[in-house]
């Protein structure tokens, strides 16, 4: 049974991250995903101190708050003339450091060890069960991730054209009256939710891999945004299965193997994608050269 729960948890993580990751990649904000995944730390610790639980809605809310705060601060520094990558670096390390201090200060009360935060512990998801009136409802993480995925799908589906136009041409979006800033913060809120519900399983560092790698792989495989969303999720889920299989064989970190598998799939797409692949492009160039010379 633990296999099933691990694979389901991993797939839900991959789906949440895969969807929002597409928009991060298209808006060239991959590193903002990295920043958010780290700077939600203080929010997580504070929520943990208040609620004593690691998968409460309070934690989700606190992370959302810190995620949006991160984006807001980064944007503010950029607008006042700080280099864009420098502002990202300043904001997320400072906030993450606050989280580190909080963990070290309250280590006794907070059953959050730093390894778990950084690397996740997906192998243990099925030990943390949600009981409702004495009935075993399955792992809490699965419910939390399921809720997050439902919110992400609902928001993206409802505002698909706004998300699309704001990603492609924010100037036109603003000119026709789409509230570009609102859509931006909505996306950042979704990224924060995806990050915080995933960090318990895969950790704050590797979650970035699942945000960015499947989406970048999908980018190489299609020329349509809607298809890119589905492929991104599919690549993420495939990475979960492949990674879990390898981790069982090697008896190695599950999350590590998942992200490695995602990286492997990315390299495959990079080399062999029918439209963007390196190999195909080289072959095409060669045949073109041959026909020109003939």
């Amino acid at each position: 049974m633990s296999d099933f729960w691990i694979l389901l948890t991993g797939s839900l993580v991959a789906a949440c991250c895969g969807i929002v990751g597409v928009f991060l990649v298209l808006r060239k904000m991959a590193m903002i995903g990295d920043a958010i995944s780290h700077s939600v730390m203080p929010g997580i610790v504070i929520a943990f101190l208040i609620s004593g639980s690691r998968d409460s809605l309070l934690m989700m809310f606190a992370a959302l708050l810190f995620g949006v705060l991160t984006t807001f601060l980064i944007g503010m520094f950029q607008r006042s003339g700080i280099q864009s990558d420098a502002s990202i670096g300043v904001v997320f390390t400072a906030l993450f450091a606050i989280g580190v201090i909080l963990v070290s200060l309250f280590a006794r009360q907070v059953h959050l060890d730093q390894d778990a935060i950084l690397y996740g512990e997906i192998a243990f998801v099925h030990w943390n069960i949600w009981e409702l009136g004495g009935v075993d409802m399955g792992p809490k993480a699965v419910w939390l991730l399921g809720f997050t995925l439902a919110v992400i799908i609902a928001v993206i589906a409802a505002f698909y054209k706004q998300f699309k136009l704001c990603s492609f041409d924010p100037a036109l979006a603003a000119a026709i009256g789409i509230p570009v800033a609102l859509i931006h913060y909505l996306l950042m809120g979704l990224v924060s939710m995806a990050t915080v519900s995933s960090f318990e399983s895969v950790g704050a560092i590797l979650v970035v891999g699942l945000l960015i790698i499947p989406a970048s792989t999908a980018y190489l495989l299609t020329d349509r945004l809607s298809a890119m969303l589905f492929i991104s999720v599919a690549v993420g889920v495939a990475s979960t299965f492949l990674g879990y299989g390898v981790s069982v064989l090697l008896d190695a970190s599950i999350a590590g193997c998942m992200v490695c598998a995602a990286g492997f799939l990315f390299v495959l797409a990079f080399l062999f994608s029918p439209s963007h692949g390196l190999v195909v492009r080289k072959l095409r160039q060669r045949s073109l050269a041959a026909s020109v010379n003939a």
Partner: peptide
């Protein structure tokens, strides 16, 4: 705009109707 965005010409024109 980024012309590498995954979309086709008709889809861009459709954005005018949004």
């Amino acid at each position: 705009v980024d012309w590498d965005f995954p979309t086709n010409a008709l889809d861009v024109v459709l954005m005018g109707t949004y």
